[in-house]
């Protein structure tokens, strides 16, 4: 006899074979005269974890809401499990759990009432991960949601989302306002779901450490545009190197070198982040040495951290944005 779980795994596999769980092509969202998203595309396969990183106001929340069909798009198309986002049926919505940035639930309701409400709505409701989070956060079920601290609210809503046993989990800054211990708990719970149940996860965050722990892929957003398309973390970090220049040099000349991603001034030194394939990075390094001049000290190429390369991408995009405006 085929069980509910078997059916779910089968569905997930078919989805995986057919097309990505989440797909967006050329998404544009405008609020009045302001562009919130511009030509954003992405594809996320089943069972993968994609982290969306960007500054405040970069459009992460809008991207999530556009993917769920909660904001109208000017152009482009978004699909979840192959269904258009603007026309998601109840059956498809049952496979999606979403935690908004505001950690929104009715403040008047008690935690136990929230659980009862979700349980009556979702047939595959599993309280185990929720209970674990509530216990860890010492959250009593008879307390009203509005009386909880910010961290406790975050743990509650993430727990409720996990308890839905979703196929797609969308978390918009789930660890915002959490202490380090609670953050780790939440991340581990999400990770466990992703690994054990093969849940696809889309998470927006500012925490690079969380990205490293959670994500398989990374998408950088800046001012509503894709600063760096979604790619594996390893290749993203592996395609970047750093070099330190000790001299008074013409930064514009260095910035113009093909392969130079960003320059970080550090007191008397200049840290240069290079990005590209190996040949491009070597060529860029040679040009950098040449332009720095004979009196300059240029260090050897070294590997960079995820945080360094992420910040370099975002900073470069921000500079370019300023120049465009």
């Amino acid at each position: 006899m085929r069980t509910c779980c078997d059916a779910r795994i089968e569905t997930t596999m078919i989805d995986a074979l057919l097309e990505p769980v989440v797909r967006a092509e050329g998404l544009c969202v405008r609020f009045g005269d302001r562009s919130a998203l511009s030509d954003v595309s992405l594809a996320l396969d089943a069972g993968r974890v994609l982290a969306v990183v960007g500054a405040n106001g970069a459009g992460k929340s809008t991207l999530f809401r556009a993917l769920l069909g909660l904001v109208p798009t000017r152009s482009g198309e978004a699909t979840l499990f192959g269904h258009r986002a603007s026309e998601l049926s109840p059956a498809v919505r049952a496979r999606v759990a979403y935690v908004s940035e505001e950690h929104a639930e009715l403040p008047q309701l008690r935690v136990r009432e929230l659980i009862a409400f979700r349980r009556s709505m979702y047939r595959s409701f599993d309280e185990a991960p929720l209970r674990a989070l509530l216990e860890r956060g010492r959250i009593a079920q008879d307390r009203r949601f509005g009386e909880l601290s910010r961290g406790q609210r975050a743990q509650t809503v993430v727990g409720l989302a996990l308890a839905q046993s979703p196929d797609l989990l969308m978390l918009d800054d789930p660890t915002l306002g959490l202490d380090p211990l609670a953050r780790r708990t939440v991340v581990q719970s999400v990770l466990a779901l992703a690994r054990e149940a093969g849940t696809t996860v889309l998470v927006a965050t500012h925490e690079i450490a969380d990205v490293e722990r959670l994500a398989d892929e990374l998408l950088l957003l800046s001012r509503g545009r894709v600063a760096s398309p979604a790619q594996d973390l390893e290749s993203f970090v592996g395609a970047a190197r750093a070099v330190t220049v000790e001299a008074d040099v013409d930064t514009d000349a260095l910035r113009a070198i093909d392969g130079v991603l960003f320059l970080w001034p550090r007191k008397t030194k200049l840290e240069v982040i290079l990005s590209g394939d190996e040949a491009l990075i070597e060529r860029a390094y040679d040009q950098l040495v040449e332009r720095a001049g004979a009196g300059a000290t240029v260090s050897e190429l070294r590997e960079v951290s995820l945080e360094e390369v992420t910040l370099a991408w975002l900073a470069r995009d921000s500079e370019e944005g300023d120049r465009r405006e």
Partner: peptide, 14 residues
């Protein structure tokens, strides 16, 4: 205002 409208719209019911 509270952000709960999105949650309502994503419930698995009509």
């Amino acid at each position: 205002r509270q952000g709960t409208w999105d949650g309502l719209m994503l419930l698995p019911i009509a």
